[in-house]
Design a protein around this nucleic acid. Structure first.
Length: 313
RNA sequence: GCCCCCAUCGACUAGCGGCCUAGGUCACCACCCUUUCAAGGUGGCAGCACGGGUUCGAAUCCCGUUGGGGGCACCA
C-alpha cells in the first residue's frame, strides 16, 4: 500500500492539504507501507517518461511546447515541461510497481487512455477497479450543504472513527453510486460507542473514567460529551417545594451509603425512591440540571456522596 | 450533443438459471421493557424500474425503453 500524493499541478495545491489528508487517514486507522510519495518531487522520472512516450510515437509536441497524446489530444505535459496527471500517474504506477488501483468511477473514462500510455511506456497498467461515488442523502452530489461531506466533518460531528470504518466496510466497493445513510452511520456510532473500553471513551470525550457508565446511551461522541458535562458540571436549577420530599428521602438513602456507589447500589436507591412514589424527574433535574440525559442510576454511581448530597440539598 | 458505467423494500444490500412465496441490516409503525433519552425484546409495513425475447424454468442471460451517475481540461 503506497500513499502517493498526486500534486503535479502547483496551482491547485492547497496549503495544509496533505496534512489534513494524513490526519484523516490516521484518524480512520488506515496505514500505508510506503510514502507519502509526492509527484511534485519526481520531475526527473516524468521527464524520462516523456522521452519514452515521444520515442514510442505516442506523444506529439504542440506548437506551444506542450506534449499531447497522439490522436487523442490529451495533454501529457505542459509547455513548462511538467507532467500532467495522466502521464505522471501512469509513469509512477509503473515505476512503483503498483499492482492494483481502486478509485472512484469519475476516473473510469481515464482507463483506456492510461492503458494506452502504459503500453507505450513499455508496461501494463495495474488492475483498476472503479467504485460508485458517495452521494448525499438526497441522491445529489455530496457537498458542504449536506453536512457530513468530509471525513473531518464526520469526526467533528461526533461520529467515532470505528463507526465510519464499519460503514465504509459495509459499503465495500459498490458498482453504482451510493447515498450516504446518516441513520445507518448513527446506528453504527451507537454500537461503536458501546464497544469502546471505558478509558478510550473517557479519553474521547475528555471526561473522568467514573462518568463513563453514564455515557453509554449516547448516540454520538458529541452527545456523550454533553452527558459528561451534565454529570461533571451541571447548571444549577431551582426546584419547587414539591420536590423537597423526594430529595430529602434521597439524602436519607445516600448518606449512610459508601462514598462511591456501585451500579447495583445506585440502582437499589432508584428502586427504593420509586417504591415510595418519589419524583425521579426532580432528582434528575437536581443532579444534572436537565430533564433529559444519562440514565439516573449511572449518574448516581458517577457522583461521590458529598457532591450528590450538595446538589440535592 | 457524444462516449462510458449502473439499476432488488424508504436506505444499504444478499442473490451469479430451479434452493425466492426474494433473505438480512437500518429507518419507519405497533406492542413489551423502562417514571428521562437511549439501548434491548417481539411483531409488522415494504422491493426485483418498464417492455420484449432466450429457456421446461429468469431477480439472475440477451435486446430495447426509462431512470440515475460519471466523463468529454495545459484538474486530478
Amino acid at each position: 500500500m503506497v500513499l502517493r500524493i498526486d500534486d503535479t499541478d502547483p496551482a491547485r495545491n492547497v496549503e495544509g492539504g496533505e496534512d489534513a489528508l494524513l490526519a484523516d487517514l490516521e484518524w480512520l486507522g488506515i496505514g500505508f507501507d510506503e510514502g507519502p510519495v509526492r509527484q511534485s518531487e519526481r520531475a526527473a522520472q516524468h521527464a524520462e517518461a516523456m522521452e519514452r512516450a515521444l520515442g514510442a510515437g505516442l506523444a506529439e509536441r504542440d506548437a506551444d511546447g506542450s506534449l499531447r497524446l497522439a490522436g487523442a489530444g490529451t495533454t501529457l505535459a505542459r509547455p513548462d515541461g511538467t507532467a500532467t496527471y495522466q502521464l505522471a500517474s501512469v509513469a509512477d504506477d509503473l515505476a512503483l510497481g503498483i499492482t492494483h488501483v481502486i478509485r472512484g468511477s469519475d476516473h473510469r473514462p481515464n482507463l483506456p487512455v492510461q492503458q494506452r500510455i502504459a503500453r507505450a511506456l513499455g508496461g501494463e497498467l495495474p488492475e483498476v477497479i472503479h467504485h460508485g461515488l458517495m452521494l448525499g442523502p438526497d441522491g445529489k452530489k455530496l457537498s458542504k450543504r449536506h453536512g457530513h461531506s468530509s471525513i473531518s466533518q464526520l469526526r467533528d460531528e461526533g461520529f467515532p472513527a470505528a463507526a465510519v470504518r464499519a460503514y465504509l466496510d459495509e459499503l465495500g466497493l459498490p458498482e453504482h453510486d451510493v447515498q450516504l445513510d446518516v441513520a445507518r452511520l448513527g446506528r453504527l456510532a451507537v454500537d461503536a460507542i458501546a464497544a469502546m473500553p471505558d478509558e478510550e471513551l473517557a479519553a474521547a470525550v475528555e471526561a473522568p473514567v467514573e462518568v463513563v457508565p453514564a455515557l453509554r446511551g449516547a448516540r454520538s461522541l458529541l452527545e456523550a460529551r454533553e452527558y459528561a458535562r451534565l454529570v461533571v458540571a451541571p447548571e444549577r436549577t431551582a426546584l419547587g417545594d414539591d420536590a423537597r420530599l423526594t430529595l430529602e428521602r434521597f439524602g436519607e438513602l445516600r448518606r449512610p451509603a459508601p462514598e462511591w456507589l456501585t451500579s447495583d447500589e445506585a440502582r437499589a436507591i432508584v428502586r427504593e425512591l420509586k417504591a415510595v412514589g418519589g419524583d425521579l424527574r426532580a432528582l434528575r433535574v437536581a443532579l444534572t440540571g436537565a430533564e433529559r440525559g444519562p440514565e439516573l442510576a449511572s449518574v448516581l454511581a458517577a457522583l461521590p456522596r458529598d457532591e450528590a448530597l450538595e446538589r440535592t440539598s
